[in-house]
Nucleic acid binder design. Structure first.
Length: 466
RNA sequence: GACCCCAUCGUCUAGUGGCCUAGGACAACAGCCUUUCACGCUGUAGACACGGGUUCGACUCCCGUUGGGGUCGCCA
């Protein structure tokens, strides 16, 4: 059997981190098994669905490079067909009209709660004749669910889960206005799309029972379910806006690389021995449902950040320079010029060892983009006292006597100078750093000097030296 | 409240009855390296929720308790 999975978000908001992981697992599972990964937009709630949300979902998927097969299916376009399936059940006596008013249902739940039972529909119209229908109340169509026995799903993640059928009520298939509900639409679409594996959040586990019954009632065999545990916030509760549950684009904007988010999400609830750094190719090869854990995982920003530091360190220099260009422009107040950017690119091998996010990377690269004379921060000002300025003044001639201008030669020159002057290397290096960068923290100072070039380097020294 | 799910270091996890004096990673702490900051390296601290079984032997299997989570819409 060839595998077909799907990701079916409802476009009522951005692609949040939990949804992204669901998409990731579906994508991985399909790719691992050489099957198809489909996308379905569940926009049946027209009031809450927006084009912005649809765009955000597509964008998030592309950012993570989760490519889908075939054109995305918009569920709203299939409403007629869904309703037809409900009528078929009606004709076969597997569904019925219910004339309860919302008030009546509210009262029913109120009573159930008071009596300590489940807040279920009591099936009061299940066996009543339509001739008893009250005037002026448009009915909904309810599914005539089995009342005895139990429903079992063999979940690929959770194992066999069973529930007594009397714990499940007759769900609404068609609303009073004739539009299909989520329960009906999902089942019909999953069937029509040939979905073999439904991988989704654990919060859908109870829906799986009802959907299984519906599949059976329509004469179809249900797909294999895999309910993956939810992602929780640091406090252990379901990730919500309260916890800063953000869209993937928010993580992009915070300076995280897509491969970081990919790797992080992958390791949340799934593991492969002691492996931590796993690229997409390796993930496709290794991923499978039996490896997915059953307990919820908490979102950990520290770990995400640490992974990002790793992926920045190993990323291509040119790509990083391009990625931080807009951030530099923001900080400078205008786009960095070509000279500035070539220095930034040249300095990238050392810079990327230090930045944990693209924002930090931009901050640390900023001094390369500055124009002379540099503005000194407090630390640099403190370092550049009269004595330090005098030292730098005497150092200048020593920096003009050798070629080529390489980190190695610069280091030799500075060390020789320090020795000749009876100074510790730090007595020269720290003032140099302050002069070159305007601050007290930077990559190795000889590499910085080399990247700046002799003219720029000497210029920056002369700007502050006596 | 009812139903369902879950339970190993602070966090993510390895572990599928003996390889476990429970391994790795992040975070924490100490140190080394060093011109600063990182990186890197070394080390320290840190967990099988509890109670019963089953077994020659349980982190691993069963039951209960406790704790956490999810679901109970004419939302998806």
């Amino acid at each position: 059997m060839s595998v077909v999975t799907r990701f079916a978000p409802s476009p009522t908001g951005f692609l949040h981190i939990g949804g992204a992981r669901t998409a990731l697992f579906n994508w991985l599972f399909a790719r691992h098994h050489g099957g198809k990964f489909l996308l379905r937009i569940e926009d049946t709630d027209r009031k809450r669905s927006t084009q912005e949300a649809i765009d955000a979902i597509f964008e998030g998927m592309r950012w993570l490079d989760l490519d889908w097969d075939e054109e995305p299916l918009f569920q709203s376009t299939r409403a007629q067909h869904h309703a037809g399936c409900a009528r078929k059940l009606l004709d076969q006596g597997k569904a019925y009209y219910c004339y309860c008013t919302p008030e009546e249902l509210a009262e029913m739940r109120e009573k159930a709660r008071a009596e300590g039972g489940r807040m279920l529909y009591d099936g009061r119209w299940r066996d009543r004749s339509p001739s008893e229908a009250p005037d002026g109340i448009p009915p909904v169509v309810r599914f005539k669910a089995p009342q005895e026995g139990e429903t079992i799903i063999s979940d690929s993640v959770q194992g066999d889960v069973r529930v007594a059928n009397d714990q499940l009520d007759d769900m609404v298939l068609l609303r009073a206005d004739g539009t299909p509900t989520y329960m009906l639409s999902v089942v019909v679409d999953d069937h029509d799309m040939g979905i073999t594996h439904v991988i989704r959040g654990d919060d859908h586990l109870t829906n799986a029972f009802r959907q299984t019954q519906l599949f059976l009632s329509l004469g179809w065999s249900p797909p294999v379910f895999g309910h993956i545990p939810l992602i929780h916030g640091a406090d252990g509760a379901k990730l919500s806006k309260r916890h800063g549950a953000l869209g993937v684009e928010a993580y992009r904007d915070m300076g995280f690389l897509p491969e970081t988010v990919f790797n992080y999400l992958l390791r949340l609830g799934w593991g492969h021995g002691d492996d931590e750094i796993i690229d997409r190719q390796q993930a496709v090869e290794w991923f499978d449902l039996p490896g997915v854990g059953r307990s919820p995982a908490r979102f950990d920003m520290d770990r995400l950040t640490s992974l990002n530091a790793h992926y920045i360190r190993t990323a291509d220099d040119r790509r990083l320079a391009d990625a931080i260009t807009p951030l530099l422009a923001e900080r400078l107040g205008s786009p960095p010029d070509a000279d500035a950017m070539s220095r930034v690119a040249a300095g990238m091998p050392e810079l990327k060892e230090r930045g944990k996010t693209l924002g930090q990377l931009a901050d640390s690269a900023l001094f390369y983009a500055f124009k002379r004379p540099l503005e000194l921060d407090n630390k640099a000002t403190k370092i550049l006292n009269d004595q330090a300025r005098a030292i730098l003044g005497r150092l200048v001639p020593a920096l003009t006597t050798f070629d080529p201008w390489t980190a190695e030669n610069i280091e030799t020159a500075v060390r020789d100078f320090a020795e000749a002057e009876g100074l510790k290397l730090g007595d020269v290096a720290q003032p140099l750093r302050a002069a070159f960068t305007g601050t007290n923290v930077s990559p190795g100072i000889f590499e910085v000097a080399a990247v700046l070039g002799r003219d720029e380097a000497l210029g920056r020294i002369e700007d502050i030296a006596d």
